[in-house]
């Protein structure tokens, strides 16, 4: 059995240790004895919708987003849409998350048209507006488990009816600092503001994405459990920095 990951814009949208997400998927799949292949698609490089089970997009500054947005639409857009419709997982963080929506209006300059893979829109209230920065803890809407991370974004994201939030904010700002939602999910497409990076400290979520990504070619797969002592301890410590006390002996899901 093998897992094929496509890392989009690895040297452009890589602001907040985003490669840690790919490293986590790779190692956790390898630890289960899976073969893992990582493809990279940079500016100008087309992707084959059938060539990967999981597509990852990281975050970038406005300038990098400006370079990536037209490329994402024109060069990679139809392939990503096709792959997602076919059950491939797409995970986008921060700047990449914003570009999966219909549009992102930056602090200044023209509006960036997004891919429209997620029913959402992001607006930056302007250069003087407060950035939403800090440690964040989110309760996943599907299973009630916790996600920990760090967020840092000027844009405020609002979801349309065709996207569900990834979770509810326990501590921090989330999509817009107002409605307590964080991230978005539609089918197998995920977007979130959580970096830190997202996956190393949220091992359960990484495993969930791996299972989902394998499903298209391998059907329902059960992953062997791993010892996640380091992952759990780091998650507890990060949650504590967000002011949320999580007791390890109760397990991460129930603070």
């Amino acid at each position: 059995m093998d897992l094929r990951i496509c890392h989009l814009y690895p040297d452009l949208l890589n602001l907040y240790g985003d490669r840690g997400n790919v490293a986590t998927l790779v190692r956790r799949a390898q630890w289960r004895g899976l073969d893992v292949h990582v493809l990279e698609a940079r500016l100008g490089e087309a992707v084959d919708p059938g060539a990967a089970d999981l597509f990852f997009i990281g975050g970038g500054e406005d300038r990098q987003q400006r370079l990536a947005a037209p490329d994402l639409r024109a060069v990679k857009g139809s392939a990503l849409r096709e792959a997602a419709a076919d059950g491939a997982v797409v995970l986008a963080v921060c700047g990449g998350y914003q570009l999966l929506g219909h549009a992102y209006r930056p602090a200044d300059g023209p509006v960036l048209e997004g891919l429209g893979l997620l029913d959402l829109e992001t607006v930056h209230p302007g250069p003087g507006a407060r950035r939403l920065i800090g440690n964040i803890v989110v309760r996943d809407l599907a299973g009630g488990r916790l996600l920990v991370g760090f967020e840092n974004h000027g844009g405020r994201t609002r979801l349309g009816s065709a996207a569900a939030p990834l979770g509810t904010v326990v501590a921090g700002f989330g999509n817009n600092g107002e409605d307590r939602t964080e991230g978005a999910v539609a089918g197998t497409v995920y977007g979130t503001y959580l970096h830190g990076p997202l996956l190393p400290k949220n091992a359960w979520f990484a495993d969930q994405l791996i299972v989902l990504a394998l499903r298209r070619r391998w059907g329902d797969v059960t992953l062997a459990p791993l010892s996640d002592a380091e992952e759990d301890r780091a998650a507890v410590a990060a949650a504590a920095r967000a002011g949320v006390r999580v007791r390890l002996d109760l397990g991460l899901p129930d603070p």
Partner: peptide
Amino acid sequence: LRAEDMALRLKYAGVPA
């Protein structure tokens, strides 16, 4: 203060526990 994060980073860097 973030010793645990650093330990996790080393785990994924392949440094033996």
